[in-house]
Each structure stands twice: as C-alpha cells, then as structure tokens.
Design a protein around this nucleic acid. Structure first.
Lengths: 127, 127
DNA sequence: ACTAGCGTTGACACAGGCGTCAAGGTTTAC
DNA sequence: GTAAACCTTGACGCCTGTGTCAACGCTAGT
C-alpha cells in the first residue's frame, strides 16, 4: 500500500509517517516511480508508535518497541530495551504524579485562603 | 534599583524581566539615561510571577495575580480573577493527575505482561 | 583616556511532533 | 488532453519562556 492508505489505516497523516521514517522508525521500499510502498507489518509498527505516543511517550522512547516488533516478536514490549523504557516511564509517571499532587495541595490551600480573604473583604464592605 | 539587582533579588534573569515587561506584567520607570528603575513593589510582583511559574502556571495565568497586587491588595490571590484562575488550575490538575494515573495503570500492566513474556521466552531457551 | 561592568534594543535558537505550503512528477478517469 | 488526486522533497511555522549574541551607550574607577 502507499503512504496515503497507510496513514488512513493508522489514523494519522502522511506527514507523520515521513517524519517517523526520517527518524529511522519506519523503512519503506520504493516503487519504480519513487513512491513509498508499505505492507501489513508496517501498519503494525505505526500502530505501535501511535499508541505509545498517545499515552505520552516521545518518539525516541518508541524505538525499542519498534525494533522489538521488527525482530519478529509478537508484541513490541517484550524485549529488554522496551522493558527498560517501561520501567523508566513508570518511575517518571510516579514522580510526575507526586509533583502534581504536591502542586494540587498548594493550589487548593491557596484557593481556600484566597476565598476566605475575599469573603472577609466582602463582609467588611457590607457591614 | 536597576534591572540586574532586581533580577538577582528575585532569583531570575534580566532577560526574563524584560520579557515580563514586554507582556505587560511589569512596568518600569526609566531614568534619564534610559535605564529601567524598579522598587520594592516590583520585587513583590516578580516574586509572585516566579512562584506561580514554578508550580506550572503560564505567564498569562499570572496576570490576574499581578494586577491584584498592583491594586494594593496584600496578596495576589484574593481578587476574583485570581480565584477563578486558581479554580481552573485545580480542575486542570485533577484532570491531569487522573490521566497520568490512567496511563500509569496501562504502563504497569504492559510492563508486568512484558516481563512475563520475556521470562517465558527465557525459560524456553534454558530448557 | 581607557577599561570594566553595567545598561539598551533586536534578533536568532531551542524542543517536538507535526501542519502546511511550494513546486514539481505520476497516474487515473473521462 | 486535461483535470483530479495521488506522490515527491524542502522548508517555514507553531508554542513558550527564556539563553545568548550582536552592536552599541552610560558610568565609575584608575
């Protein structure tokens, strides 16, 4: 299949597919007229990339998964490189969540305080 | 005080201060030679901006706080605009935390599954 | 008078994953 | 034969808060 069809099937754009190729994640054969030619295995690669990007991985992080799939494995996650990325991401997520929760507490406290102050101002105006 | 001193006291750079001014968050008087001249109230403004940026607010979000302080209030948070931003941010944070926790569960499951698969592969090689 | 260290404005650079346009070649359908 | 709908590469734009450099002016100390 050609790039437009692959993009459609994978739910993305031709621009994105060329971008992945430019970064070594996708390799296309070329037909005699220079058009890129893809098959089902490429569709699986792109779907793997897309689903990882969707949950917040960056392109570089998807590389081990792509290579894992290309090496013939059934899933992209079962290779050491992928497992390492997953572990790192889990730790990243925990750190990120903890930071956001700390910020949430700060904002919540600030909000409660501000509302209180504002109410006090209001009551002084009314009285 | 001049811009370098203010930057130092506020723990930021002259570049950042000029940027805030460019976006209408900071207004400097000018001395006869064209130098910006600041006072203590400007320092408080900059500190407010910095602390909000640090917890993940963007510059636009700091505007109500700055205007609140400039209107003579004791804190930047006690004006309606600031309170509204705080409320929005709290909701944003909740949404963000929930999404990250959902992603965390996905990654955790994926990781457990991948490790299991890898172990199975390993055992098959050993046996 | 000269240097060091401040200040001024203007402008480019970055990160990341594309969107989008330009200028052209190919193929297909009518 | 020509228009529509593909494809190609190349390159700029975006967004955000600065870092950094250029080229220049002011001021203080020696």
């Amino acid at each position: 299949m050609r790039i437009g069809e692959l993009a459609e099937l994978a739910g993305t754009s031709t621009r994105a597919l060329r971008y992945y190729e430019q970064h070594g994640l996708l390799a296309a054969r070329r037909t005699s007229n220079g058009y890129r030619e893809y098959d089902e295995s490429d569709l699986r690669l792109v779907r793997e990339i897309r689903s990882l990007l969707e949950i917040g991985f960056n392109l570089e992080d998807t590389r081990p998964f792509v290579e894992c799939l290309r090496s013939g494995r059934a899933t992209g996650a079962e290779c050491p490189g992928s497992i390492e990325v997953l572990g790192r991401k889990l730790a990243d997520l925990d750190g990120c969540i903890a930071r956001l929760q700390a910020v949430r507490r700060v904002v919540e406290r600030e909000l409660a305080h501000a509302v209180e102050e504002a109410a006090e101002l209001e009551s002084r105006i009314v009285s």
